[in-house]
Design a protein around this nucleic acid. Structure first.
Length: 395
DNA sequence: AGAACGAAATCGTCCGCGCC
DNA sequence: GGCGCGGACGATTTCGTTCT
């Protein structure tokens, strides 16, 4: 049977269950396991990329619940909420949650090929997800085993997996480059202004209020899917001090409220209510379109000659974050910093000239970053097109 | 209008129960 | 009696409403 009618086609479709085995090696607390193990749970695997973002050393004698054992080279697949796409190839031996299946590939089956298949849209589309009440969708082992998969000869599998690996590696490299640019920005800040604690350059000391002309809370109107203006909410401020414009909602505004509840280029946005870690996220709005902003954000406009980027970078710096954390008032699991408190934060006031130089430096790095970002998006889209061709015999 | 607070949504761990 | 299934529960994050 041919899978595709164009390009190279595979000779047959197989059951996924014929290519892999479930390891099913459970650690039971009641068996009194001894020693230590590395735990890699769902929380330690990044969604979509499958990159391991952590691990935990655990004492097996203190284990209270069941765990699954995995060994280096196994495919560890999070079958709870499969749309999160958490597929990790183990780099070492350890244990994971029982909401992860551990797979071993059989003879003549390339494990990278299988791992890529688990990650592919084809798999997510074909494997039926059971809808247990309570928002806990899972793909069951039987469904996984019955999923059809095209299986070319081993060398073909390797070739396809290698192409996908290469494309994936490019994405990671690009991501790394982006991280380096972020570090660069922080170094430039320190280089130009010196550490805020020791003030080696002897700048004038002041408070944030000295630099601001005006602060304003956003609208508390409820936002919806439709409306005249897109509205910026907490999620549109990233933890590293940027804006993103994803998952926007919309709102209608009276003309008289336009000035009050919308931002313009160069405004600072400050997140006054969030969890203790995220409260105080700050970013500069740098577009020309009109956006409204929500009530848990504070809009701050700087005085003439002040760089909003300097202020935002200061609040986002390690020192700034520590200050914010110290002053946040925590209630019911969330922290607050109101506009007055934010303005009372001490800050150094460097010359306008050097603030401008900082803005300029930042702008040129951001330009580089934008190029990198665009490149990243291209890589992403070519990766997913490669992926879909890979499993339909077109690679 | 601004601040406080409650609720909802999301994610993931852990555990008990009943079935094969 | 082990394991799959289903869900209780806690932590985190976001959003909406109520109070002052």
């Amino acid at each position: 049977m041919n899978v595709m009618n164009s390009g190279r086609s595979f000779s047959k479709l197989t059951r996924l269950g014929d290519l892999i085995d479930f390891r099913n090696d459970i650690v039971h607390p009641k068996d009194n396991p001894k020693g230590e193990a590395i735990f890699v749970g769902l929380e330690h695997v990044e969604r979509n990329t499958g990159i391991r973002i952590g691990a935990e050393k655990v004492d097996l004698t203190e284990l209270t619940g069941r765990r699954a054992r995995f060994f280096a080279g196994d495919i560890v697949y999070g079958y709870l909420r499969p749309y999160l796409n958490k597929v990790w190839t183990a780099e070492f031996d350890g244990i994971c949650s029982v909401d992860q299946y551990v797979f071993i590939t059989r003879e003549n089956v390339d494990r990278n090929y299988i791992a890529h298949f688990f990650r592919s849209e084809q798999f997510l589309k074909t494997a039926p997800v059971d809808s247990t009440p309570g928002q806990l969708p899972r793909i069951r082992s039987g469904e996984i085993a019955d999923t059809p998969i095209a299986l070319p000869p081993l060398n073909e599998q390797r070739r396809i997996a290698a192409i996908l690996d290469k494309a994936d590696a490019l994405r990671r490299k690009r991501k790394h480059a982006l991280d380096l640019l972020d570090n660069l920005i922080q170094s430039i800040f320190l280089e130009m202004f010196g550490s805020p604690e020791s003030n080696p350059k002897g700048w004038k000391q002041g408070r944030i209020s000295d630099l601001l002309e005006d602060t304003q809370y956003g609208t508390s109107e409820k936002a919806g899917e439709k409306g005249d203006y897109p509205i910026l909410r907490m999620g549109n401020l990233t933890a590293d001090g940027r804006m993103n414009f994803e998952s926007l909602k919309y709102i209608d505004l009276d003309d008289k409220d336009l000035e009050k509840y919308t931002v313009r280029r160069g405004d600072i946005l400050f997140n006054r209510t969030n969890s203790a870690d995220l409260v105080g996220k700050t970013a500069v709005f740098d577009r020309d379109e009109r956006f409204a902003f929500a009530g848990y954000l504070v809009r701050a406009r700087v005085k003439k000659g002040v760089s909003p980027y300097y202020v935002a970078s200061y609040l986002n710096s390690r020192h700034g974050k520590a200050t914010l954390r110290g002053m946040a008032k925590s209630i019911v699991g969330m922290a607050n910093i109101n506009a007055k408190e934010m303005q009372s934060i001490p800050i150094l006031i460097p010359d306008a000239k050097i603030q401008r130089a900082y803005s300029d430096a930042l702008a040129s790095i951001e330009a580089l970053r934008a190029v990198s970002k665009r490149h990243m998006r291209l890589l992403d889209s070519s990766f997913s097109s490669l992926q879909s061709r890979a499993f339909s015999g077109q690679l």
